[in-house]
């Protein structure tokens, strides 16, 4: 019945992914709060960010975090729109706007993280 006309996609994959990414985000969010905001300095000074970003693991975690967060958030917004009967053109334009927004802001976030330099003298990896 859900396959009627519009699409062969029943949305079940995105439903499962929404739950998996949600659970992952809860774990990442706890880590984010403890590591970044336990002390005011750890999130709010350049020196602390620079020191942290010498470890590639932090970069990988941040890249995962923003990717999952963008996917989960924008998929959630799309799920809200899916609850309402929309014209085909409205569906298409909303979906493409969300995809473009997601890709643009994810790319911006990646760019910010990659722009932070590795310092040779620092004993990181």
């Amino acid at each position: 019945m859900y396959k009627y006309k519009a699409s062969k996609d029943t949305g079940s994959k995105s439903w499962v992914l929404q739950r998996i990414t949600g659970l992952a985000l809860v774990v990442l969010m706890i880590g984010h709060y403890i590591l970044m905001h336990y002390q005011p300095e750890s999130g709010h000074t350049y020196a602390a960010v620079l020191a942290r970003m010498q470890f590639s693991w932090y970069r990988i975690i941040d890249l995962t975090f923003i990717t999952l967060g963008m996917y989960h958030g924008l998929n959630g917004i799309w799920n809200i729109f899916r609850d309402y009967k929309l014209k085909q053109w409205a569906k298409l334009s909303i979906l493409s706007a969300l995809v473009i927004l997601g890709i643009a802001f994810t790319a911006w976030g990646f760019n910010i993280i990659f722009s932070i330099p590795y310092i040779n003298s620092f004993s990181g990896n």
């Binding site: 924008l74 911006w108 910010i112």
Partner: peptide, 22 residues
């Protein structure tokens, strides 16, 4: 959820000066 995704956009914007240095 809407508030959090809005904040995520804001968060990317707010830490973007990292590219411009200390």
């Amino acid at each position: 959820g809407i508030a959090l995704i809005a904040y995520l956009f804001l968060h990317v914007y707010s830490i973007s000066p990292l590219t411009k240095g200390e």
